[in-house]
């Protein structure tokens, strides 16, 4: 129905950008879940399966990008939000970078698609799992935003969200220690490896660490967002 109405109420109450933020966060988790699939096909050397996962991640990434653009386009300066608009957009941008980093990992694996040797395979897998856990903890923290807003930032909901943010920090720090021990292990074996293998593995570890770091950063943005 085009014109012939004058309902300022409809124009006043806008579609919630927070709902779209949660949808975007769900894409982050979905993409993170693909990491394990990618790793498994990487480990077993099934190139076809790996390419399928790679394709899926690309689709997820572009979908998430579309949501991000949608949120930004519908958030002009004249929109009054219960949180700082700039902070909100910064959180969104940090959240989106998690997906970009995951895509970087998939691409990096693809560059040299040879499975890691048996001695370290378990450690690499452990790191992949831990990264996924960190992202899952982040999605849980973002999920609290709904209750936070509904209760108009009550003390109780703030404490629950803070607790969820702490959980992201805890998971990220486990990631950190796994990264360190794995890097150490790789260099301990440097005599048995070629330069290519060392480079590929160490950078893979760094890229994985980056995903967890991004999740932590995004969680910190959430912390700033709910500050009075």
């Amino acid at each position: 129905m085009g014109g012939f109405k004058r309902v300022p109420f409809e124009r006043t109450v806008r579609k919630s950008p927070f709902e779209l933020l949660s949808t975007h966060a769900r894409y982050v988790t979905k993409t993170a879940n693909k990491l394990i699939d990618a790793f498994n096909s990487f480990l077993s050397g099934e190139e076809e399966k790996f390419l399928k996962v790679k394709k899926e991640v690309e689709t997820l990434e572009s979908e998430a990008d579309r949501i991000k653009g949608n949120i930004r386009n519908h958030l002009p300066k004249s929109i009054l939000m219960p949180v700082d608009r700039t902070m909100f957009l910064m959180l969104l941008s940090e959240q989106d970078k998690i997906i970009d980093n995951i895509q970087d990992i998939i691409e990096w694996i693809y560059m040299r698609n040879r499975p890691p040797r048996e001695e370290i395979a378990e450690n690499v897998k452990e790191l992949f799992n831990q990264v996924e856990k960190t992202v899952a903890a982040y999605e849980k923290a973002i999920g609290n935003l709904k209750d936070l807003i509904e209760s108009s930032f009550s003390e109780k909901e703030r404490n629950e969200t803070k607790e969820a943010i702490w959980e992201v920090h805890r998971q990220e720090s486990i990631c950190d220690s796994l990264e360190r021990s794995l890097t150490k292990k790789i260099f301990d074996m440097e005599d048995k490896m070629g330069a290519g293998e060392i480079l590929h593995l160490t950078k893979l570890v760094m890229l994985l660490g980056e995903v967890a770091n991004r999740a932590e950063n995004a969680a910190d943005r959430l912390r700033a967002l709910m500050a009075r």
Binding site: F9, R11, T12, V13, R14, I79, L80, P82, I149
Partner: peptide, 23 residues
Amino acid sequence: HTVVGAVVGVGMARGLEAVNLSV
């Protein structure tokens, strides 16, 4: 107009997720 004013008031009280002030 009074209803729209009241919506903006609740928005100011951090009650609404997005209020379009250009109205």
